[in-house]
């Protein structure tokens, strides 16, 4: 069976750290930065477990600020 690998890119300056993508992710890929903040002072989202991403786009669909891009490859 072909394996699907995914990755997301978060537009850090647009992200407001609302945590909705973290909750929506079924494979627990995303997390909010514990200490680092963007220019507006928000703890932005990042890929904590990049190898688990399956490119399901759940995070991008629920993101209110459209700051997530999703990439998908089939190995």
């Amino acid at each position: 069976m072909a394996k699907i690998k995914g990755a997301v890119v978060v537009n850090v300056e647009r992200c407001k750290g609302c945590d909705l993508c973290v909750v929506a992710c079924p494979t627990h890929v995303l997390a909010l930065q514990p200490k680092e903040v963007n220019n507006r002072g928000y703890h932005f989202a990042y890929m904590q477990n990049p190898e688990s991403c399956i490119a399901c786009q759940s995070c991008a669909l629920v993101c209110p600020d459209a700051c997530i891009e999703v990439y998908r490859v089939q190995e």
Partner: peptide, 20 residues
């Protein structure tokens, strides 16, 4: 490989809405 991105018609202005 891109399958999802910000729609073209949504421009780059930072939205004033609260987080979430």
């Amino acid at each position: 490989n891109r399958v999802y991105q910000k729609p073209r018609l949504l421009n780059d202005n930072h939205m004033h809405y609260c987080p979430g």
